[in-house]
């Protein structure tokens, strides 16, 4: 009966994995459009605050480091589930989620600081483009954290074993993608003056 549920596919790839890769392809266009708009608008603001007045490279470097390191934890979580190590899976899934939460904490701090410095989503086009872009990225990280915590809970209950490693792998694809997007955002928005 199990064979009837999952007949072999034409490529040998699992449907879920292939579908998810397609979704990621689509997401690149989504973030591509958001990032392009930011690049067009970053110098277009007619009133301050301007990007160089508020963007804090040292602080964001720390949160970037945490987020990118969480990708390592994600790889280790996948490795653990493939080895069948429940404790390892749980540990690394939680570590990844905590990395994401720290990143979100930094983002909350950054947004609050900017608002105190007079930059809201309504202040100027830089503010609009910045908050919508990083806000959507943050929303993606939040979804990822919920996803990872759900997988961690299932692992703790013993419902994710070696045969379910694909579930962790797909969550990992998502997590790495969200990280890669952040590398682009960090480079283009923060590092390039």
């Amino acid at each position: 009966m199990e064979i009837a549920h999952h007949p072999p596919t034409a490529t040998g790839l699992d449907n879920r994995k292939l579908g998810f890769w397609t979704f990621i392809g689509s997401e690149t266009l989504f973030f591509g459009s958001l990032i392009s708009t930011y690049m067009v608008y970053k110098g277009a603001a007619v009133t301050g605050p301007y990007p160089h007045e508020v963007l804090n490279i040292p602080v964001t470097s720390v949160s970037t480091f945490v987020l990118l390191t969480s990708s390592l934890a994600m790889v280790l979580a996948l490795n653990a589930v493939q080895r069948g190590s429940r404790a390892g899976t749980l540990t690394w899934l939680l570590a990844t989620a905590i990395g994401g939460l720290i990143f979100l904490g930094f983002q909350a701090y950054e947004f609050t600081t900017f608002v105190h410095e007079g930059l809201t989503i309504q202040t100027n086009v830089f503010g609009s483009a910045f908050y919508v872009l990083t806000g959507f990225h943050g929303a993606h990280v939040s979804v990822g954290v919920l996803w990872l915590l759900t997988l961690a809970a299932l692992t703790a209950m013993g419902k994710i074993g070696r045969e379910d490693s694909l579930k962790v792998e797909i969550a990992g694809l998502y997590w790495h993608f969200v990280d890669v997007v952040w590398i682009v955002i960090f480079t283009l928005i923060y590092l390039i003056p």
Partner: peptide, 22 residues
């Protein structure tokens, strides 16, 4: 559409020429 919705519902400036929007 997100930009347009943000302009209409959250008073952003994506398409407001006076604020530098294009």
């Amino acid at each position: 559409l997100i930009f347009l919705a943000a302009d209409r519902f959250f008073a952003t400036n994506f398409f407001v020429p006076g604020a530098g929007g294009d």
